[in-house]
Amino acid sequence: MSAPSPRILPFLAVGLIATAFGLVFFYAPLEADQGFIQKIFYLHVPLAITALVGFMLAAVHAIIHLRTGDPIHDARAYVSIHMSVIFGVAVLLTGAIWARASWGKWWVWDEPTLVSFLIVFLLYATYYPLRYAIVERDRQARYASVFAITAGAFVPLNFIAVRLAEPLIHPRTLGAANGGLPAEMMFTFLVSLAGMGLLWVTLVRFELAAKASRGHLKRLRRNLLDPDQDAIATRGLGGRIEPLIEAERA
């Protein structure tokens, strides 16, 4: 995560996403079976892929955190999971809309990818209660990292298990029987995927920067307060030390 110019990143992300939307509406062909609603595919699938890659990145940061003990990697894992969970909400919403439009139901249990994603989402949602249940910061960071690694290994296993358990697989746009996606659709999809990925990276960077400045502020405030803390502690002794100091001065 060391792209050269962070300032340009937001513009690049917005530009790519705008391009992708243009392509979705004016360039990509209408899908024969599903019609216009199929276009939600260009939002739903890139969001899902980005979220899952984000979860994996979190696991990588968590491993580095445990190896080095550097809190920055814990922060990166945390923000990665946070952003991916937010993306995950969008994935589930767009998935529900798509299901409603094509199958008439808000939720379909025999769609293994969607069900797998729900389970993954539910697991990562427990990351927050875990973090906030541990007061001491070093321990919190270590446990959060262990969680991120465990959950990272969980994701592929979960997809395998859910897919194997579902003998009936609906025909999907990606990897359809008739030799995959048409070129225009593929191109639009890839641009959209790149846009979502960049958006994720941008948001993660923003939140990391915000976290860093919050931490900096806390440190500054602590340094300011510290002498006061001493004074409070001294006063807490019932004023018995002041006479001693006075006596020493005299």
């Binding site: 001294t234 019932g238 030390i241």
Partner: peptide, 10 residues
């Protein structure tokens, strides 16, 4: 005693 008084404040 002086050192201790300073330490414990009493």
């Amino acid at each position: 005693l002086t050192i201790l008084e300073t330490l414990y404040g009493g």
